[in-house]
Amino acid sequence: MKMLRVPLLVMGFLMCAQGFAATAQQSKMTTCNADPQAKTLKGDERKAFMSNCLKATPAAAAKPVTAQQQKMKDCNADPQAKTLKGDERKAFMSTCLKK
């Protein structure tokens, strides 16, 4: 009797894992179907749209920008940084990132 418990337990975990995966896919399908653009498309255009929509990663899954990355972005966007070259640019970026 004890030997039967382990395979049943493993099988139960596998079935639960499949249930979670199906739920994520179903929610993605619901989101893609709810898109107003999907409602106006027909045939092959709709198939292509749905395929792209389902392949796309959700925006929430995108990595947030760290403070250091934001500083780099801001310093690079500075018009002064665009005119500098070589060592002058390195010095400017160094002081800008230390702020």
Rank of each mutant, 00 (worst) to 15 (best):
T40N: 07
A77D: 05
K90I: 05
P7M: 11
K55E: 14
N76M: 09
T40C: 04
Q68A: 13
A34I: 10
A38I: 03
M50C: 06
M50T: 06
P58Q: 13
Q37G: 01
M72D: 03
K85N: 06
M3V: 15
D35S: 03
E45T: 08
M15Q: 07
D44C: 00
T83C: 04
V10D: 08
D35Q: 03
D74A: 12
V65R: 00
A61N: 10
K39C: 05
L41H: 00
A60Q: 07
A21P: 03
M93N: 03
A60F: 04
G19V: 12
M29D: 11
T83E: 08
R89I: 05
A34C: 08
Q37K: 15
A24S: 10
Q25D: 10
S51E: 12
C75A: 00
L54M: 15
K47E: 10
K71L: 03
Q37T: 13
T83G: 04
M3P: 11
L14W: 06
T83Y: 07
R5Y: 14
T23M: 14
A81K: 04
Q68S: 10
D35E: 02
K73I: 06
M1V: 14
T23Q: 14
A22Y: 11
A91R: 04
T31V: 10
R89E: 00
M93Y: 01
K71W: 00
K99D: 09
Q18A: 13
P36A: 02
V6H: 13
M3F: 15
K99V: 15
K39A: 09
V6L: 15
C32L: 03
A34D: 14
L4N: 07
E45L: 06
A21I: 06
A91Q: 08
M72K: 07
E88N: 06
K63G: 07
K47A: 14
S94W: 07
K2V: 06
V10G: 13
R46M: 04
D87K: 02
K28H: 06
A22K: 10
K2Q: 11
Q26F: 11
M72T: 03
N76A: 05
K98H: 11
K28M: 05
T30Y: 08
